[in-house]
């Protein structure tokens, strides 16, 4: 069996992360703490964004730019998380 190439692996990872996002979001209906599920949902979105930047947009070949984008995206997701958690704390 041949191993999938990096692009195919990225696509499969995005599908898995999207499925995980849907499952985590539905956990609220089962009584899970929305602060935890919301944090996980944003973390999964960040992971998906990083994969798109690295593999679809090709920043894996440009490590300096990749680090810069990842840092900016991570800080932005932290801002979103803070705004989301504000009314829940």
């Amino acid at each position: 069996m041949t191993r999938p190439d990096k692009l195919t692996f990225a696509w499969i990872s995005l599908l898995v992360l999207s499925g995980a996002t849907t499952i985590v979001a539905e956990l609220v209906n089962l009584g899970f703490d929305p602060r935890v599920t919301g944090t996980l949902v944003l973390f999964l979105a960040l992971m998906k964004a990083r994969i798109i930047l690295a593999r679809y947009l090709g920043l894996a070949e440009a490590p300096s730019w990749r680090r810069g984008f990842n840092l900016a995206l991570s800080l932005f997701c932290l801002l979103l998380l803070g705004l989301y958690l504000g009314p829940l704390l």
Partner: peptide, 19 residues
């Protein structure tokens, strides 16, 4: 097109999932 994709993976949780 990837930029459009990238925006959606952030828009989806913010608008549809973060209750």
């Amino acid at each position: 097109w990837h930029m459009v994709d990238l925006v959606w993976v952030l828009l989806f949780p913010v608008v549809y999932l973060l209750a």
